[in-house]
């Protein structure tokens, strides 16, 4: 099993079920690195002060909230820690609702919930009760320092936790220019007929990420053809190292006992 991202227990009333939360999805997006076109070396990011153009060390940074353009309220790490939700070890169930009522728009990220140590019985019972009642649990979980709204439901033999967006994070659809025109019954019947004709069972395996496949194919071909930027000469030592190297060489030559001549070894001290 994958490493637990969180362990604790599901809790409501007098019920307490030890569980572990593990990832349910592993996005396969391709990530690229930025190289210098000239020497193919990796580029690094630096923090540059916008005022004096100097590079800034991490210990001279402040977190601040922009209240108005150019106007900031700084918050210390201690203040941020103070305000962070307590890293509780429980998923507090607040309500049970019917899954049909939950708009998929709120779904944020899915996780699996696995039984914790000696929790098999309680886990199985809870899963079965959720399944047979058609209800899902709504509660709160603290991941790292963020408190999430979460929904727990039965899925086959497992429990699945999906973090949810808070209602005030969802953009109201009133902000869209939505049509209000009249539609005839005939048009509607025709459109529904077309939908029916194209309706199949949902089989997610049938849909592939064509873009990723295409890019991976291209990368494979280029790599087989030897178009590998990593083979470019690695970073040459800087001036200080080169100077040191020359000084080392010079002092070895001067003593007439370089790397090849020092058969006596270093023990004579």
């Amino acid at each position: 099993m994958a490493r637990a991202l969180w362990s604790g227990s599901i809790s409501f009333g007098l019920v307490n079920i030890p569980v572990r939360v593990v990832g349910a999805v592993a996005p396969k997006d391709l990530h690229f690195h930025l190289l210098h076109d000239k020497d193919k070396a990796r580029l690094r990011q630096k923090r540059i002060c916008s005022l004096d153009g100097e590079e800034v060390d991490a210990r001279h940074t402040l977190r601040a909230y922009e209240t108005a353009p150019g106007s900031y309220v700084p918050l210390t790490d201690a203040e941020l820690r103070e305000a962070a939700p307590e890293a509780t070890r429980t998923i507090d169930i607040q309500d049970f609702v019917s899954l049909k009522e939950v708009d998929p728009l709120y779904f944020e990220h899915p996780y699996y919930v696995a039984p914790g140590p000696s929790a098999d019985k309680a886990y199985a019972l809870f899963r079965r009760a959720c399944e047979e009642s058609g209800r899902v649990a709504v509660g709160r979980i603290v991941f790292h320092t963020k408190q999430h709204l979460a929904l727990i439901r039965a899925r086959d033999k497992a429990l699945v936790l999906t973090t949810l967006y808070y209602a005030d994070e969802v953009i109201p659809q009133e902000s869209l220019p939505l049509p209000a025109g009249a539609i005839t019954d005939r048009e509607l019947a025709l459109a529904k007929q077309l939908i029916d004709d194209l309706t199949v069972p949902f089989e997610p395996e049938r849909y592939k990420d064509d873009y990723r496949e295409t890019l991976l194919g291209l990368i494979r071909t280029k790599s087989e053809q030897g178009t590998v930027a990593a083979a470019a000469p690695a970073r040459e030592p800087g001036a200080r190292v080169v100077n040191l190297m020359e000084a080392l060489e010079a002092s070895l030559v001067q003593r007439g006992r370089g790397a090849k001549g020092a058969a006596a070894g270093p023990r004579a001290r």
């Binding site: 083979a231 690695a234 190297m245």
Partner: peptide, 26 residues
Amino acid sequence: PFAHAVAALLAKRDPDRVVAHMSRAL
């Protein structure tokens, strides 16, 4: 930098046996 200079010097003297940079490919 001292360690780097020693590594670079040995790599320069014995390029068939020694490398002084990280690139796994090399």
